[in-house]
Design a protein around this nucleic acid. Structure first.
Length: 934
DNA sequence: GCTATCACG
DNA sequence: GACGTACGTGATAGCC
């Protein structure tokens, strides 16, 4: 087909595809000989998906090509020898895969183009220009900002990562100028990734401002004398040559000599033999099956060869496709016995439970799925109800064809409790709690969610859907398809059994595959110890704590709610009076309009959404002059306490136990901290007097006491250790007031002359350091001029020289490795560390904070894991964890002993794995309720 | 479903 | 004066 009007050329940036594929997949190898082929597999998958996803519709291609770079030396290197000089070497196992991706492209019968000495970007530019001149449209599949200069007049980009088209507006959003001026902005801003120098001190924002003002880079440079800001003016005059060179480097070449024409890029169907032949050669079983299906051809038979010499650990997964139609329904004892035999023979089994609720305390067991081999899974329906939910005849009868639950569980119990059989689950804590309610203690266990967390914390989430998409390239059946959403949603016991089999067994199948993929990776990534000592053993401990729950007194809460409501009503009336009219005090939007439009107060700032900011800091500033914002602050404080705590907490009291059972999310925080949900019991108020009284509602059973033990200054102690701060370590060893010591050191005030205000400032700085301090942040926190804050920080660095070194080293480590580590070896990945712009600052501070927060999290995890054995036999139960605090419920005559034991476990928790140069100190409290105990 | 706000360590 | 900024979370209410 001759290219012309009505044609649509898609140009895929091949290198971008390869790198994305490489980083998204585990290091797969070809089974027969160990050749690395992960990137090729991902590349083929992405290519196939792109073609499939775009075969119809307005944007369907008539012409398509994948464009690659060729040769490392281009005309840009002649212009500037440092161009792209700081690029990292290509990973060893990726290099041999590059030619294979060319072959893959050809096998798909897609034009595969590269020209020696030219970057893919230039070829793409040339083709785009030609296509545009011929009157056709172009879609460039890439997210590379260097290509944005090409957008316009029928040329658009498609960011496959974000699944988003980028048109002229998209470019303008990114660069602040029209596409034809993008090179001018880039020439000024430079690019550290490609090593384009640009104008020092000028970023995209300023560059766009200048170009928009002066029209073009050339005019700007010619009229640089007119610029008011002296520094900027000098830079532009002095660095003119460097800026002009930068423009040449970023300007794409539309005249690349091509040895082919647009007509050569026409869309062609693949030849089934060639394509399937290639896929068979690569030994892509799943992919060749899928493609064979779409081509209507027979899938090639791929021999399962693994000759001696090939490394068995590096095997490419040789798995059948995930096919929900093939799962088995277990309806009688004979079938169940057969599965039990298979499990015993195998030694491990993936298990998943289906229930009526996400709340494990209330959930009723509906069915169990099992898998022992990829592709082989079953579902045992146990509690499915007959028929759909019908307004008139809502039958509660059990559906036919199900084993009696008691009988099935009796048969499964020995397997689930067998020390010789590993039970594999995704979020096993949930299933373990369900089984625990049927008097089955599931052990030993492995958990794919926790493995993913140990391997990839900070990179992605760890839910089954995420993991399946990412590591198995498979989208599981969405639960919504079975249950529906919103008010009309049904519970799992109402799902037709045939549908349930597909969904439930698929989950077990996926879990098993993930386990097989993650298990060897733990070792390769050196996080086996983290998984084995900090993740896996915590599961039963948390399950126990959640089942214990804490007693909450409804009367206390309800009484407080009433009081709060009364005060809020009074405040509301006063606020309306002051405002001159009624409005919803709880609406930030309406409040902003009242304050800044109607009352005309100063300091109204609109955020990015166009609404006025009315946060506490803003209202506090206004409160010095006016009554209304002060009242609103009071109202908000009460509203928060009432809605989030005194009201909502009552709804969480379990009707059976009279207690509140939170859920801990072990993979919730990237640093290793736990998260508490439904309800969150880690943010019960304590800082304000009124709020603290809510803790009075958390009580001990009659004859018992609540005991709270918390680590004193654990993060600062860890900082003193990791940053090697002799003065601070000494102070901790001597049991000194650490903030006062810091203040004395910094402000040259003797300890006996310390004032609360100086100490307060030092305290803020100490915390700031843990958070990756910045002058801006400290200034805002202390409400002092930024310059003063910076002065404090400089002085702090001077007096505690280890700090600066720690911060720099940590950021350097993160940049080099892509992660930071706790003292116990937990990895926290920091993918954003290479980002440019404001995100770089975030990433740096997070990287500085993570080892400190994470080490503290590891320490308390170790204490919690050891606690059950340490307190065994004592009349005590561990109930809650609040990051550096553990709360127990203890029989009143066992309180002192429990405190002794628990303190000892907590203070010694780091050893013997890690020797911390500073003692860990634990404070204890006791009382009838949490307010007293804390 | 997103944003603003605010509770905790 | 490049950018926007303390780190890590979860729940609620308002609003589109």
């Amino acid at each position: 087909m001759s290219f012309g009007k009505g044609c649509h050329l898609h140009l895929i940036d091949g290198s971008a595809f390869i790198f994305r594929a490489y980083h998204a997949l585990p290091p797969l190898t070809r089974k027969s000989d160990g050749l690395p082929i992960g990137a090729v597999a991902g590349f083929c998958n992405m290519l196939q998906r792109y073609i499939d996803g775009n075969s119809t519709g307005n944007d369907a291609p008539t012409h398509i090509a994948v464009i690659f770079d060729k040769g490392s030396h281009t005309f840009r290197n002649d212009l500037y020898d440092q161009y792209k000089a700081n690029r990292d070497e290509m990973p060893e196992d990726l290099r041999p895969q590059i030619p294979l991706t060319r072959r893959a492209t050809e096998a798909f019968n897609i034009a595969c183009k590269e020209i020696e000495g030219f970057e893919a970007d230039d070829i793409i530019a040339t083709l785009s220009c030609q296509a545009r001149e011929a009157g056709g449209r172009v879609t460039i599949v890439s997210s590379d900002k260097d290509l944005m200069q090409l957008v316009g007049d029928g040329v658009e980009m498609f960011d496959a990562m974000k699944n988003r088209r980028i048109d002229v507006e998209g470019v303008e959003e990114k660069f602040g100028v029209m596409p034809d001026k993008v090179v001018d902005v880039q020439a000024l801003a430079g690019d550290s990734v490609d090593n384009v120098p640009g104008a020092p001190g000028i970023g995209i924002k300023t560059a766009a401002l200048l170009i928009n003002e002066y029209g073009s880079l050339e005019d700007l440079l010619d009229r640089a004398e007119e610029i008011k800001q002296p520094k900027r003016r000098e830079t532009l005059i002095e660095k003119r040559e460097q800026i002009e060179l930068s423009k040449k480097l970023v300007q794409l070449d539309c005249d690349t000599p091509l040895d082919f024409t647009l007509d050569d890029l026409d869309l062609r169907d693949p030849d089934p033999d060639t394509l399937l032949g290639f896929l068979a050669e690569m030994e892509f079983r799943t992919l060749s099956k899928r493609i064979a299906e779409t081509l209507g051809a027979e899938a090639p038979v791929i021999p399962d060869t693994n000759p001696a010499g090939a490394d068995p650990v590096e095997e490419a997964p040789d798995w059948p496709a995930i096919d929900p139609e093939k799962y088995e329904r277990v309806s009688d004892m004979k079938a169940l016995e057969a599965w039990i035999e298979r499990i015993k023979a195998r030694g491990y089994v993936a298990v998943d439970t289906e229930t009526t609720s996400l709340n494990e305390m209330q959930a009723l067991l509906v069915g169990i799925s099992l898998s022992v081999e990829p592709g082989q899974a079953c579902y045992i329906p146990l509690g499915h109800r007959d028929g759909a939910t019908d307004d008139l005849f809502n039958t509660d009868a059990l559906a036919d064809g199900q084993l009696p639950m008691e009988e099935a569980l009796k048969a499964l119990k020995p397997v689930l409790e067998d020390d010789a059989i590993l039970k594999i689950g995704q979020n096993m804590k949930y299933d373990a709690k369900i089984f625990a309610r049927h008097d089955i203690e599931v052990t030993p266990i492995d958990d794919t969610m926790l493995m993913s967390y140990a391997l990839n914390s900070g990179i992605h989430g760890h839910g089954m859907d995420t993991l399946s998409e990412r590591y198995l390239s498979h989208t599981p059946i969405p639960i919504k398809e079975l249950l529906g959403t919103g008010k009309s949603a049904i519970t799992f016991d109402r799902v037709p059994i045939d549908d349930a089999v597909k969904y439930a067994a698929e989950d077990a199948d996926i879990t098993l595959r993930l386990w097989m993929s993650f298990k060897p990776q733990l070792h390769q990534e050196k996080v086996t110890t983290v998984y084995e000592t900090l993740e896996r053993p915590l599961v039963p401990v948390l399950a126990r704590m959640e089942r214990n729950g804490i007693k909450v007194d409804r009367e206390t809460l309800s009484h407080m709610s009433g009081k709060f409501a009364q005060k809020m009503a009074e405040l509301e009336e006063a606020i309306h009076e002051l405002a001159g009219r009624k409005f919803n005090v709880g609406s930030p939007k309406q409040l902003g309009e009242i304050l800044f439009d109607e009352m005309g107060l100063e300091g109204g700032k609109k955020g990015k959404t166009g609404a006025y900011a009315t946060g506490a800091d803003v209202l506090e500033d206004l409160a010095t002059e006016h009554d209304l914002p002060a009242r609103v602050l009071d109202w908000r404080a009460l509203s928060k306490l009432k809605s989030t705590y005194t009201d909502a907490l009552q709804d969480h009291i379990d009707p059976d136990t009279g207690r509140v059972h939170t859920s801990y999310v072990q993979t919730g925080a990237s640093t290793g901290r736990l998260a508490s949900t439904d309800p969150n019991l880690q943010n019960i108020p304590v800082r304000s007097e009124e709020g603290r009284r809510i803790r009075e509602a958390f009580v001990a059973e009659k004859g018992n006491r609540l005991v709270s033990l918390d680590y004193s200054q654990i993060e600062l102690r860890i900082l003193a250790h990791v940053a090697d701060l002799p003065a601070m370590k000494q102070a901790f060893r001597e049991g000194q007031d650490i903030h006062a010591m810091t203040a004395s050191e910094m402000f040259d005030v003797p300890m006996d002359e310390m004032t609360p205000d100086i100490r307060r400032q030092a305290k803020a700085i100490n915390f700031g350091v843990i958070y990756g301090i910045s002058g801006f942040g400290l200034a805002r926190n202390l409400r002092i001029p930024r310059k003063d804050a910076q002065g404090f920080i400089d002085r702090y660095f001077e007096r505690f020289p280890g700090i600066k070194a720690y911060m720099d080293d940590t950021v350097g480590f993160a940049k080099e490795h892509g992660f930071v580590q706790t003292l116990f070896g937990r990895k926290i990945h920091t993918p954003e560390i290479t980002a440019k712009g404001p995100r770089a600052g975030f990433a740096k501070r997070a990287a500085i904070n993570a080892p400190i927060q994470g080490t503290a999290a590891d320490v308390i995890r170790r204490a919690m894991i050891r606690m059950p054995e340490a307190i065994e036999g004592q009349p005590a139960k561990m109930l809650l964890q609040v990051h550096d605090e553990l709360i127990f419920e203890v029989s009143e005559d066992g309180v002192d002993k429990l405190i002794d034991t628990a303190r000892e476990v907590m203070e010694a928790a780091a050893s013997p794995a890690v020797k911390i140069d500073v003692p860990l100190v634990v404070d204890a409290g006791k009382g009838d309720n949490w307010a007293e105990a804390h």
